[in-house]
Design a binder for these strands. Structure first.
Lengths: 350, 350
DNA sequence: TTATAAGTTGAGAACGTTCTCAAAAAATAG
DNA sequence: CTATTTTTTGAGAACGTTCTCAACTTATAA
């Protein structure tokens, strides 16, 4: 451990050990056969010089950078950072590092990141695509997704019309169960707030509809309102709108976790209490939900992350493997935000 | 845009364009002089083949990987992910990518990451060190920090006894002001909860003490309790302890944001309301604080991130530059969690 | 002893860039 | 026209690895 100068190369080690760099390579790469004497000398020299192999050079030669990239909307999002946490942990275990790329939910940024990742020779990508249901994929982008010769696993959201591996929660099923739970408590008029453009939210709405249908409740499309992703305080605004226009509502079902706090703000303003005045269910668990005793559908984000990495490594081993979709269980944590619907119109001012 | 095969090299482009790879290099690297004719042919060929330069090869040759690493406790932490968000944004602007490394607040992991980063030839590091005040740095680690020939900027926490650049909030000052605010409302007995081991928290305690001293209030050391980082629900436990042992308390000052939710749980349990029963101030803004109307010292995390990146790039340009400390302003957002102290002993059961 | 097999070793090519250097081509001056 | 300067160009070395291949050493068999 003489010196940590980063420009110590395999040649320096070879020289000090009195062997060829091929032999040094064999020792540090642990392949081929090396005599005990040589091995000892090499190990000695490595320690003496504090040699660390240059990953860049290794990458150039071996076509593997030991790096995976995670492309997502924003690391500030709770779901995303839990996911990245899990991914990094899992990747580290396998000796891989994680590059982080925020798209800011902007398609051009996503494309830009993908291009960049290609030139960086990243070994694999985990992507939460910005792609929204309504939009048709521009032809030039479709080409990019399909021609990109990098193993790729989508998480959470799907890109319509493109065959890629995907790991996500059982959105439809969980939503179906949650709605059924509300119905079983006696609710007939359940307002829904969510960012409709995402495939995930679409699935959740499907489950909601299925439960209503099964219970013979007429579906009122105006009870489902769309929250523009980027809008500030959109949850509060939409809660207000729903409660104003639909005094018959007895329950609120919030499909994105990011919206929930903002919705609570509106309930607070109207002095509505759960579960007496209104029942509430939301997605994803966080401290806020715990503090407010909100019944929540929790996603096993850690497991999603782990599965995505696992699948990605399979893909890296066998790039020809057929795309498959993995749906991870969810769990409904029942707290105290749901009760029987109020029979009296509480929302008399509307 | 014929083919996105990733193994298209500069030689392929040169061949198609009918020039040497040196000329191609000149065109894409935008240096030297190239005739208009050659330039046109090269650009044509690049487009035709959908050529992207191999960053790995560039890195090997030019000794710059266009990558910076961020090493921190956990990306799940609110402060950390805001910081990473800002860093990534700023780095992207300059054509750099960000590698993310969680230490799980474990020193060995931190060391491991630093080693790894060295072998990866990362251009610079932003580090929130796990180092805690009390511990003496083991000699072998000290050596590593000092000999690591990579530009490095510390954020938030300092490593005692090691001279490195540092960007952090004005912790002492902000804490002084916040305490003064509580005192001005009439509080004399202010309980403090924080993870004492971090230099950041130490500074905040210093500010708290200074304000008390200045107001001529005797400092009672037992009012400051230490929250072990890793312990679950430690905030609640300590709030309970403080309130039980010190019925004279009229205000609580929470030094880590991560503890606040847990503390609120205890207040809820005891049915204590802010500001009537108890005043509360905490650090860092999030939705929870907004919802509970908690007066908060907010850090300009985005600015901290930006400053850190800026400084890192200065260091990358001029590695000999002397280490300096940058302290970023904070802002106290006054909400409704603080009021005049209750004169009657509310905590009668203790 | 020699023939053969097994184990060990080093020279050097390859990965895909950047960049130096000297030569060739073009432009300008006389 | 030639001489000189300026612009443009390509050959090839270098970056630090991995890995092939042939040669060498040692062990085993006959």
């Amino acid at each position: 451990m003489e010196n940590s100068n980063q420009s110590i190369t395999i040649d320096d080690v070879a020289k000090l050990a009195g062997v060829s760099k091929a032999t040094v390579g064999r020792v540090i790469g642990n392949y081929g056969s090396v005599s005990d004497k040589s091995r000892r000398k090499v190990i000695e020299a490595v320690k003496e010089l504090d040699y660390v192999p240059n990953t860049i050079a290794q990458g150039l030669r071996s076509h593997s950078t030991k790096t995976i990239a995670v492309i997502l909307g924003s690391i500030k999002n709770g779901y995303c950072n839990e996911l990245v946490y899990a991914i990094e942990k899992e990747a580290m275990k396998r000796g891989y590092n994680v590059l982080i790329c925020n798209t800011h939910e902007n398609l051009d940024k996503e494309i830009q990141h993908l291009q960049n990742i290609r030139s960086r020779q990243v070994d694999g990508v985990i992507l939460i695509p910005v792609y929204t249901i309504g939009k048709v994929i521009p032809e030039k982008y479709r080409h990019l997704y399909e021609s990109l010769n990098i193993p790729m696993v989508l998480v959470d959201r799907n890109i319509m019309g493109i065959e890629k591996d995907l790991v996500q929660s059982k959105n439809e099923e969980a939503s179906y169960e949650a709605t059924k739970y509300l119905i079983s408590l006696g609710h007939r008029n359940i307002g829904v707030i969510g960012t409709v453009a995402y495939s995930t939210v679409q699935d959740r709405i499907k489950g909601y509809r299925r439960a209503l249908q099964e219970a013979g409740i007429t579906i009122n499309a105006s009870l489902v309102v769309d929250a523009e992703y980027s809008e500030k305080h959109v949850g509060q605004k939409l809660a207000d709108k729903l409660l104003k226009e639909h005094p018959e509502l007895t329950a609120l079902y919030v499909l994105n976790n990011t919206l929930c706090g903002s919705v609570l703000l509106e309930l607070k303003k109207r002095n509505l209490h759960m579960p007496d005045d209104l029942s509430l269910i939301t997605w994803d668990d966080d401290e806020l939900n715990e503090l407010f005793d909100i019944t929540t559908i929790v996603q096993y984000v850690e497991e999603i992350g782990r599965s995505a990495v696992k699948r990605l490594f399979e893909l890296m081993e066998n790039p020809q493997s057929r795309a498959e979709i993995q749906r991870i269980d969810t769990e409904m944590v029942v707290r105290k935000s749901c009760g029987k619907p109020k029979t009296v119109r509480w929302n008399s001012k509307a």
